[in-house]
Write a protein that binds this DNA or RNA. Structure first.
Lengths: 196, 196, 196, 196
DNA sequence: GATGAATGAGCATTCATTCAT
DNA sequence: AATGAATGAATGCTCATTCAT
């Protein structure tokens, strides 16, 4: 008795999911170049050949993960965009970053590593360009000040978040995330006489 | 008639320099794994085999560069340590980081990329541990406050600098370094009612 | 639809066999170091990479052949051990060696060459030690005389066989194996007033 | 003040001697392929380049050693040829082989290994042919019997000596050379009813 | 869809040999 | 005569990708 089309589709999705999950772990922990298709297939519990039924190359697996991570990040940011008060909005976005560090360290690690590896993915460049444009657009939105000043502040907050991710990746659980979160929110999201 | 020892030494130094310089460019721009010995030799204008007269492996080239970069960074920090006033000291260190970004972007790129590559260098782990210890030691020194509070502040400044390096690497010359420097120094190194 | 396990097993065995056979020829005729993986693959009619699906290194190919040869030799000796009469037993073992020379010259050649190659195989040392011990144990068994005297005689017979193998390897088919066999059996396996 | 021609010649000979001596040690202990020109030059205490002033290639060094060893062996055999009594002559040659094992194990090791390595030296083939012819010529000379019978006996003695060398190489100092020598001389060089 | 045997280009590394001085 | 820097062909090995079944 043949399966219905939806069942096939379901199987496909399940296999693809297993592949991506295995690849994410390995890419993040061993690096992209050091991860072999063989090792992905073993971790995913499927055969080497099957991977190529779903993804046409090793790079396209990376791309799939990268895009998923990108989308997740973007969604999270967008979901906070309806917050009216600028300080609350900044706070929400900062907290979101900290949440991601605790819940999806692998994604963040991979995003960071990949973004920095020029040779690995030419697609990164495209993304980087877009990100820069978007950060300019978001600037006033996020900080709610004059364009110039808000832009600089948004870059600072962005850099700070990136730097914390980077340090967290390096130092691991010893890095005092909550103390930092508290201090940063105090520094950057307190209405009164903002910093200085 | 053999060359005199000084002549040999000269030749050696010249070749080693060419190798390191070529390797630095390539590692920083293409990544360590994606850089072949062949490409290093071509960029250096020498033969593949000669590289192995001076460095016993690809990894040892990386290590040589890494150590040079480390030393440079450490020296720069140490040279600012005799500054008495905490705010001036913070300012000096922040400015130093910005100077490095402008003068030695490749070194910074390489340090950042390498530090994040899990498989590439086990030596990084050792360094990372030391760095964490040192940052703790520096904490009070740099900020000159109570240990706990000073420590958190030093981590924030450190993360901010790292994040700016990272963003500069990604965005390149479009990234408004001087505006950021000005703002950050204003935020973190102003004596009066420091932040808030 | 995947192949059935037996089919895979069959393919594997066939390829492994081809590899070992090609390697045996080449190792024996050109020497281990002078034989490249490339040449093995060409002789076996397969690709270079496939060799590494079955043997993790060039050395492990050698080891596989070496062990097979060792086992074969040991089995042949053991199969003669149930012969009660010492002279008949000696005769059987001598004849066996001559049989091997005619039937498996490559194996003997390889064993001889390998055993003598200092750097090639540290495993040989282990084997050599064992061989020496065993030869001591076999001594009385084979010759059936007092330990000391029997030991020396067994060493002489052993050396003689080794030497004949060696000369046969060098001189090839011109070497008068059968005449030698006849004479040696007469010299060493005749009951009456054994030699002298 | 320039050196006189003889002094130059002396220096040349000294250097050549150092090279051959170093190469002999290394070839015998590490094998020909595993020995690098670099290591020979280091052991000889001269520069890599200088070796090529005296020998045009690595193989020609091997050849020089091989020929020296051959000549030495031949001289030793010839020096015994004036012994009239066949049994004493055999005894002298057998004793000579044992002497060489004790005094020049490296030469014997090298000769044995090289002779067996088809790929290493095509010159070996030429030598092997000659050796076979000579052994036929020597046959009657050495054993002093009817051509056929004497020939077989000389082959047996030759093989026995080769085999003992081979076993001595493998087992080292544990191998009971003197006991074997005594027994073999008794077996093969006793006048009365020679063997049997 | 699923398997893993098979391929071959690519890479780090070694080393005999050359050559400017 | 002497040195060792420089060369580049050769080699063992890896791994993404293909394909017969």
């Amino acid at each position: 008795m043949p399966r219905r089309p939806e069942q096939f589709e379901e199987l496909r999705e399940k296999s693809k999911e297993k592949i991506l999950s295995a690849a994410l772990q390995l890419f993040a922990n061993k690096g992209y170049e050091a991860t072999s298709i063989e090792s992905i297939s073993k971790k995913a519990g499927i055969s080497k050949g099957l991977i190529y039924n779903y993804y046409e190359s090793k790079k396209s697996i990376l791309l799939a993960i990268f895009n998923a991570a990108m989308k997740m990040g973007e969604d999270m940011v967008l979901s906070k965009m309806n917050i009216k008060d600028p300080n609350l909005r900044k706070k929400a976005i900062i907290e979101m970053t900290f949440d991601m560090m605790e819940q999806q360290p692998e994604y963040l690690k991979l995003l960071t590593v990949i973004t920095l590896q020029p040779g690995v993915m030419s697609e990164t460049k495209e993304f980087t360009k877009n990100a820069y444009k978007k950060s300019q657009e978001w600037a006033t939105v996020i900080t709610g000040k004059g364009k110039k000043e808000g832009f600089i502040e948004s870059l600072i907050i962005g850099a700070l978040m990136d730097g914390i991710v980077l340090n967290y990746i390096m130092y691991g659980s010893k890095y005092p995330l909550s103390a930092l979160k508290k201090q940063i929110i105090k520094d950057y999201c307190t209405p009164k006489t903002t910093k200085k």
